[in-house]
């Protein structure tokens, strides 16, 4: 009984929002079924541009932070680097707003010497910085179940250290790497606080757009968009999960 109420609490708001994304009227009363808001989302230039920006940022940040985070996780598993470990944990518990303003101050300060401006690149750099800790933690968790004897066997059979890493460890670690990448992508795709602080003129992301629309008031476009994002992420996670199992 209690559990049912708890699940209702978790899902009711999202369910209601999804149902009302098909509402024919702008007001919060059911006035019949309509695709109107879905159509209007697809004709909203700013929204489409923001979506593309978000996809680019999330993809680049995911690839880079997964790659370097996997390497770091592997190295940390073999040997302790307390400074790096502690700084990763510190970055994980630092409030987002603090990370955001410090990156903003840092970028503005360094632009005195480098003649560039805030934009997509600063957003990507910021995302790499906060995604890294997630990757290392997922990879380390995965490596705890990894048997080092497999690497020893590879070395005994004449492979060098790099070959062992590339041919033995990486394939076994792959599910963990996929999980880490997935986490990075969703965290990056969804981030508003840090992004809004370090974004420049031509780098508005989807969460920034949604924030602006949510602030303005009732906007059925957002209802439709919400369902699409939720469904999109759901399909993405399902696909990745299947890939991981294989």
């Amino acid at each position: 009984m209690y559990a049912a109420a708890a699940y209702l609490f978790l899902y009711a708001p999202l369910a209601v929002l999804s149902v009302f994304s098909f509402n024919a009227s702008k007001v919060a009363m059911w006035r019949g079924f309509s695709w109107e808001w879905y159509r209007s989302v697809f004709h909203n230039e700013a929204l489409l541009e923001a979506t593309i920006n978000s996809l680019i940022i999330a993809t680049v940040a995911t690839i880079i932070s997964t790659a370097i985070g996997t390497l770091a996780g592997y190295a940390l598993w073999k040997k302790r680097f307390p400074l790096l470990t502690n700084s990763l944990y510190l970055s994980l518990v630092t409030p987002e707003i603090v990370t955001g303003v410090s990156l903003l101050a840092f970028f503005e300060w360094s632009f005195r010497f480098l003649h560039v401006q805030l934009g997509m690149h600063t957003v990507i750099l910021a995302h790499i910085s906060f995604c890294l800790a997630y990757v290392v933690i997922v990879i380390l968790a995965r490596l705890r179940t990894f048997d080092p004897a497999l690497e020893e066997a590879g070395l005994d059979l004449g492979a060098n250290e790099w070959q062992v890493f590339w041919r033995v460890t990486i394939p076994i670690l792959l599910p963990g790497i996929v999980a880490a990448a997935l986490l990075c992508f969703t965290v990056s795709f969804d981030d508003y606080v840090i992004t809004s602080l370090v974004a420049g003129v031509n780098s508005e992301t989807l969460p920034m757009r949604i924030y602006a629309m949510a602030r303005k008031g009732v906007s059925p476009d957002v209802n439709a968009l919400s369902l699409m994002i939720t469904a999109g992420l759901g399909v993405f996670i399902l696909l990745a999960g299947r890939l991981e199992r294989r």
Binding site: Y7, L10, Y11, P13, L14, V16, L17, F20, V27, A28, M29, T186, F189, D190, Y192, P207, I210, Y211, A214, G217, V218, V222, N223, S226, I229, T230, L233, G234, I237
Partner: peptide, 28 residues
């Protein structure tokens, strides 16, 4: 329980705003 975590945080807040606003579902 974990699934909502994978949907956008912003959207989850927006869903509550849709319910609770002066012109939201509950008040209407």
């Amino acid at each position: 329980v974990m699934l909502p975590f994978w949907t956008s945080f912003l959207i989850r807040i927006y869903a509550w705003m849709f319910l609770l606003r002066d012109t939201g579902l509950i008040n209407t």
